[in-house]
Amino acid sequence: MTAAWKAAGLTYNRYIAVASRVVRRSLKEDKRIAAERRGESELRFAKWQNGKQGEVKNLDAANAANATEAAASS
């Protein structure tokens, strides 16, 4: 059986990221702030083709876009 999140186009890493975000948000106030800092990611990335750097994009946004795209196609 395919899991619901897989059917929705999420990768396993995306799935656990979402799950851990939910857990972090449901923590108590003081612990939540410390934990939420561990969940942040401000990475940027760029695709390369033939030795040339492409456009620099935000990684989180791109991953989210990937997920919605996969969900739309499935």
Partner: peptide, 14 residues
């Protein structure tokens, strides 16, 4: 953070 690592891994697997 692990969030960084998993985001990178996602992008690599795609």
């Amino acid at each position: 953070t692990f969030a960084d690592a998993s985001a990178i891994a996602d992008q690599i697997t795609s």
